[in-house]
Nucleic acid binder design. Sequence first.
DNA 1: AATCGAATCAACCGCGGGAGT
DNA 2: GACTCCCGCGGTTGATTCGAT
Length: 285
Amino acid sequence: MGRAPCCSKVGLHRGPWTPREDTLLVKYIQAHGEGHWRSLPKKAVFYNVAGLLRCGKSCRLRWMNYLRPDIKRGNITPNEEDLIIRLHSLLGNRWSLIAGRLPGRTDNEIKNYWNTHLSKRLLSQGTDPNTHKKLPPDNPVVVRVPKKKRKKSNKRPNKSKKPTEQEKPKIHLPKPIRFTSSVQCTTKSSSQGGENGQVLVPWSEYINDDENRTRFLCYNDDHDLINNSDFECQSHHHHHHHDHGLGAQGDSNDSLEKIYEEYLQLLKTNEDQVQLDSFAESLLI
DNA sequence: AATCGAATCAACCGCGGGAGT
DNA sequence: GACTCCCGCGGTTGATTCGAT
């Protein structure tokens, strides 16, 4: 099976994304849509967003895990935790499938959350996180239960080497807050409020201003950055999350609740493993 | 105040598979 | 069938943070 050489060898940027790179990527995707990641850096030059010297893979990852407008940020809710555990017991480490049932959550986020929180918690409860079966009581597992939850860090590390002065990682503050794909925004200046064909990029700026206001970027039809002033945003719970062919649609909370209810029902009404298996299979269709 | 080590999570890496030629 | 291109997935890494000592 052939594989293209990784772009990182030909002088493209690696490591933490800078706000400028994020802006360029968002601008490009706003204009031309997702996909064609590999050709993105080349095309970007032609579409007047030159400077996006990132490999397609890196662009895709950044978009999918961080910049996508329907990314939901914030703590995983108890309901979501429960659903993750249940789905994991059915699907195993198929993070993208699990993420597909949790609107707004990314596979990377769920994977990280599982590895850092949930698997440890299961162990501490005497459950094997891989098989979801009870561990024998005489098989003590040394588990370090997380102490207090740490404050979230927003710094981006440079993986491979110490950054030089000029390529020091930028500090991304604050992290994107909860958004959905149809975040409705209104500017404080009435004429620039996501109306008249403007495309609002529901994505927070990286610097806090004096008053700690969240700042957003706004593009017009020509995809030119026309404003980065303050917006008031409201989520309307409307998602078109990637469902990996699972057919998930509609309201995010509803769909989450629906799956959860569906599974609870199955647990209540039927102990039969075959039923549970077929439920798992239905998620794969 | 200084040091240490665990925890966190964005980003990287390699691989598999589908589609196209 | 053999090969290339592209996409997406899951595992891993490592800089940074922060609580404990």
